[in-house]
Computed example of a mutant assay.
Amino acid sequence: MKNSLRNRITLHLDMDSFYSSVEVRERPELKELPVVVGSDPKGGNGRGVVSTCSYEAREFGIHSGMPISKAYRLCPDAVYLPVNMKLYKETSEKIMDIIRIFADRFQQVSVDEAYIDIGDSINDYESATLLAKKIKSEVKRIQGLTCSIGVAPNKVIAKIASDFNKPDGLTIVRPEEIQEFLFPLQISKIPGIGKKTQPALQEMGIETVGKLASCDVQLLISCFGKFGVVMHQLANGIDMREVKEREEVKSISNEDTFEEDISDPFEIKRSITDLSEKVHVSLLKKHFRFRTVTLKVRFEDFRTYTRAKTLHAATTDKEVIRKTSLSLMEEFIGKGRFRLLGVGVTKLERLDEKQTYLSDFL
């Protein structure tokens, strides 16, 4: 398959069980033990979830996103560790610095994933394979961690390929091998086909990528709307998105300057609710979660104040934005009339690629 924009070779690098691998690197005595990173299981009564786990823990049926209480029931003897995001981010930055050196274009999509476009400097898959091996070797040598890489003509195939032979895998999919590689796979391998879409496709008799690729696209559109076109294209290995660095976003906010100053609590609540909604929409569109909510108030005499509250964990919850902003606002109620109110979020963390993938198409 040829890209109509330009021929290219794309690599997708995915760190292997990143959080738990970093923990094992820091504490070698944990090597080959089942390690679970997440909230405190509290003897099976914990209410959090598994962030990630080692491959040894996966042998017990544990996986990311699982309730920590269930993980404890499956393997009470596992080593349970709290999330150390500061350590993981520091390690991630060092890994991404290594990868950038080899890229014509580079795009980090999460703390442990990145795309690398090498199509300007390399145009054959033998050289691309050697480069991928070099990247894996450098990450292992410098950071003591393994990664898996997919090498393919575009982003979607490279992403699927990087997950094909984990851990420490390297999977090459040449243009002439796309159908042979994709078509036998289960439809769940297509990014974005999840718990709701998969059963709907299965009811239509579509179990494999090949079946999805050969399905009448008009039928898919009638059942899934625009997403039907996206699924059909991905199943056929078509992905025209380019690899490009995303601009760093440090905050997302929205302000409301009133035509007439306000002091009525109902009007204040309505304004903050509207601002929270706008911030939330922008947050999801830009693929972030947040840890800090900020409030800005300006009185009629132009006195301006800001307040902020940092949460224990990052979230995308709209209600958290609204309720936190209203809570911060309580300090100022009854102290004058307001010319401006503003709501924002900071300490942003990019959502995982698997959580945001489809929004790049729709």
Rank of each mutant, 00 (worst) to 15 (best):
M1H: 11
L11A: 12
L13C: 11
D16W: 07
D16T: 14
R25L: 07
K31W: 00
K31T: 13
L33Q: 15
V35N: 03
V36K: 00
V37E: 05
D40Y: 01
N45T: 15
N45Q: 15
G46R: 05
V49C: 02
T52H: 03
Y55Q: 07
F60K: 14
I62L: 10
H63A: 07
P76A: 01
V79A: 10
Y80E: 06
N84H: 09
M85D: 03
K86G: 14
K89Q: 13
I95T: 10
D97E: 14
D104C: 01
F106D: 02
Q108Y: 00
D112L: 00
Y115R: 01
I116F: 07
D117P: 05
S121T: 15
N123K: 10
D124R: 02
A128I: 08
T129D: 11
K134M: 11
S137V: 11
T146K: 10
C147M: 07
C147L: 13
I149N: 03
I149T: 12
N154V: 07
I160F: 01
F164E: 05
D168A: 04
L170A: 03
V173C: 05
F181M: 08
F181C: 01
F183S: 15
F183Y: 15
P184V: 07
L185D: 14
I187V: 14
S188R: 15
I190R: 02
P191V: 08
G192D: 02
K196N: 06
L201P: 14
L212M: 10
A213I: 04
A213C: 05
L220I: 12
I221G: 11
I221N: 08
K226R: 13
K226I: 10
H232C: 08
M240A: 11
R241Q: 05
E242R: 03
E245G: 10
E245S: 12
K250I: 03
E259A: 11
D261Y: 09
I262R: 11
P265G: 13
F266H: 14
S271A: 13
T273S: 14
D274Y: 05
V281G: 05
L283K: 09
R289S: 09
R289E: 02
K296M: 07
R298L: 05
F302S: 03
R303Q: 15
T304H: 09
A308P: 10
T310G: 09
L311N: 06
H312D: 15
A313D: 11
A314E: 05
D317F: 02
I321K: 10
K323L: 11
S327F: 12
S327A: 11
L328P: 08
E330C: 09
F332S: 03
L340D: 09
G342L: 04
V343A: 04
L348K: 15
L351K: 12
D352E: 08
Q355G: 04
L358C: 12
S359Q: 12
S359M: 14
D360I: 06
